[in-house]
């Protein structure tokens, strides 16, 4: 049985955090859908709050400290990514953005990604599509059509079950993308360098 890895990144700041709660529900939905299709699943939860200082240090020094590096490698090496942020000032949080800012620009190329966001009211839900989705488009990630936004009311009795439905739909979409793709494995330029003759020849051919 193939084991698929799911990195589940939350930029929630509270403890407990509704952003983490949404991330976990999305992960459970994707995991369930993958298992239904016959895959084994390993979930790697990441709370960016735990790495907030290290992320800023990374911006300043240019390299990730060891614990953050492990997280970056886990996320960029996963078969699928679930990324959830609180919406601050009509956009993703600074912490969320900082994490993506320290990744190599091609680290998520082609990677199936499910995006989610939380906020106080549903009036901010389009932030998912006008800020989070374009950022991941720039990174050439493959973002599923359904983004899941959860407002305060979705967690209470005011919710009408629509959140669960969106979560399940998004999870199934992510599982479908992951299924259609070979298990993640990026070429390691330190293990398999481009031979020098190729580099030299590339420079000579007109582009």
């Amino acid at each position: 049985m193939t084991t698929r890895t799911l990195a589940v990144v939350s930029a929630g700041l509270g403890r407990p955090s509704s952003t983490r709660l949404l991330a976990d529900r999305l992960a459970a939905a994707a995991e369930g859908a993958l298992r239904e299709r016959g895959s084994d699943v390993a979930v790697e939860p990441v709370d960016l709050r735990d790495h907030a200082h290290a992320l800023v240090d990374n911006l300043l020094t240019g390299f990730p400290a060891a614990p953050l590096r492990a997280v970056v490698e886990a996320v960029t090496g996963a078969d699928g990514l679930i990324a959830v942020t609180p919406i601050f000032n009509a956009s993703y949080s600074g912490l969320f953005k900082t994490f993506f800012d320290v990744l190599d620009k091609d680290a998520l190329e082609g990677r199936p990604v499910l995006i989610g966001a939380t906020g106080g009211t549903a009036r901010h839900s389009l932030a998912l599509d006008h800020s989070v989705r374009p950022m991941l488009a720039y990174l050439r990630a493959n973002v599923v059509p359904t983004g899941v936004y959860a407002a305060s009311e979705d967690w209470g009795s005011g919710g009408d079950g629509a959140l669960t439905e969106r979560v399940d739909r998004a999870g199934a979409e992510l599982a479908g993308l992951i299924e259609g793709r070979a298990p993640a494995g990026r070429p390691d330029p330190y293990a398999d360098p481009v031979p020098f003759a190729e580099m030299l020849a590339a420079g000579r051919s007109p582009s």
């Binding site: 240019g62 390299f63 400290a65 060891a66 330029p189 330190y190 360098p193 481009v194 020098f196 580099m199």
Partner: peptide, 23 residues
């Protein structure tokens, strides 16, 4: 850059690793 390590190796030149800014 792995490309520069490859370049140094190709020519049989020396390779100097900065060894300051990264672990």
């Amino acid at each position: 850059s792995p490309e520069i390590a490859e370049q140094a190796a190709f020519y049989g030149d020396g390779f100097f690793a900065n060894n300051i800014f990264w672990p």
